[in-house]
Measured scan of single mutants.
Amino acid sequence: EELVKLQGERVRGLKQQKASAELIEEEVAKLLKLKAQL
């Protein structure tokens, strides 16, 4: 659960930094994978 929170914050940070869409999608995919494991 802690990992999900951390990953969510990372995604939010990337969006604020206007990171590339590919990078954000990659991180979102990791986030969804972590959530699925809960």
Rank of each mutant, 00 (worst) to 15 (best):
E25F: 01
A29T: 05
L34R: 07
K5Y: 05
L14A: 12
Q16T: 08
V4D: 10
I24A: 10
K5I: 03
L32C: 13
E2P: 00
L31H: 07
L23A: 10
G8N: 09
Q7D: 02
Q16D: 13
Q16I: 05
K18G: 14
R12G: 13
K30V: 07
G8C: 00
Q37K: 11
E25T: 10
L31F: 03
V4W: 02
E25K: 11
Q17P: 03
K33N: 06
A21R: 08
Q7I: 02
L38H: 10
E25Q: 12
A19V: 07
S20Y: 00
V11A: 06
A21Y: 06
Q7F: 00
V4E: 07
L34W: 05
E9Y: 00
G13Q: 15
K35F: 00
A21I: 08
E22Y: 04
E1K: 07
K18A: 11
K5M: 07
A21N: 13
E2H: 06
L38Q: 14
L3A: 07
A29D: 13
K33Q: 11
Q37V: 06
I24M: 10
E25R: 09
K15C: 05
A19P: 07
L38Y: 15
L14R: 04
K35E: 14
K5P: 02
L23R: 11
E25S: 11
E26F: 10
E1L: 01
L34Y: 08
L14C: 08
V4Y: 12
L38G: 15
K35A: 15
V4A: 06
E25A: 13
G8L: 11
L38R: 09
L3M: 14
L23D: 09
E1F: 03
L6Q: 14
E22R: 10
G8T: 14
E26N: 10
S20C: 08
Q16C: 04
K15I: 11
L32R: 13
I24G: 09
K33M: 07
E25P: 06
A19G: 05
V28I: 04
K18H: 15
E9D: 11
G13N: 15
E2D: 15
K5W: 03
K35V: 15
L34F: 07
E25H: 11
E27I: 00
E1W: 02
E1N: 15
Q16E: 13
E25V: 04
L31G: 09
L32W: 08
V11Y: 01
E1V: 01
R10C: 03
Q37M: 10
L34P: 14
Q16P: 05
K30A: 09
I24N: 07
E2S: 04
E9Q: 03
S20Q: 09
E27L: 00
E26D: 10
L32T: 13
K30E: 13
L3V: 03
K30D: 12
E22K: 12
A21L: 09
Q37Y: 02
G8H: 03
I24S: 06
K15L: 07
G8M: 13
K15Q: 12
L23E: 11
Q17F: 03
V28F: 03
L3I: 08
V11N: 04
L38M: 14
G13T: 14
L6R: 12
E2Y: 02
G8Q: 14
E26G: 07
K15P: 08
V4R: 02
K5A: 05
L31Y: 06
E22H: 07
K15Y: 03
A29C: 03
L38F: 02
S20H: 07
Q17S: 12
E9P: 01
A29L: 02
L34S: 10
L3P: 00
Q7A: 04
E26Y: 05
R10M: 09
L31M: 04
E2N: 09
R10P: 12
L34E: 13
K5R: 05
L32Y: 15
Q7S: 03
Q7T: 04
L32K: 13
K33E: 15
I24Q: 14
L3R: 05
V4H: 02
S20V: 01
L14G: 06
Q37D: 13
Q7G: 01
A29H: 05
V11E: 12
E9T: 05
K33W: 03
L32F: 04
L6G: 06
A29W: 00
Q17Y: 00
E9I: 01
L14H: 03
K35W: 00
L23H: 09
G13S: 14
K15N: 07
L6M: 13
A21T: 10
K33D: 15
R12M: 05
G13E: 15
G13W: 12
Q7V: 03
K15G: 04
V11H: 06
L23N: 09
V4S: 05
K33L: 04
L23Q: 15
L6H: 12
I24Y: 13
E2L: 01
V11P: 10
A29Y: 02
L32V: 09
E2C: 00
L6W: 04
K18Q: 12
K15W: 03
Q16V: 09
Q7H: 02
R12C: 00
L6C: 03
Q16H: 07
E27D: 11
L34T: 09
K30Y: 02
E22I: 07
L6S: 07
A21K: 12
G13H: 12
L34V: 09
V4P: 01
Q17W: 02
K30M: 05
E1C: 00
E2R: 01
K15V: 08
A29G: 08
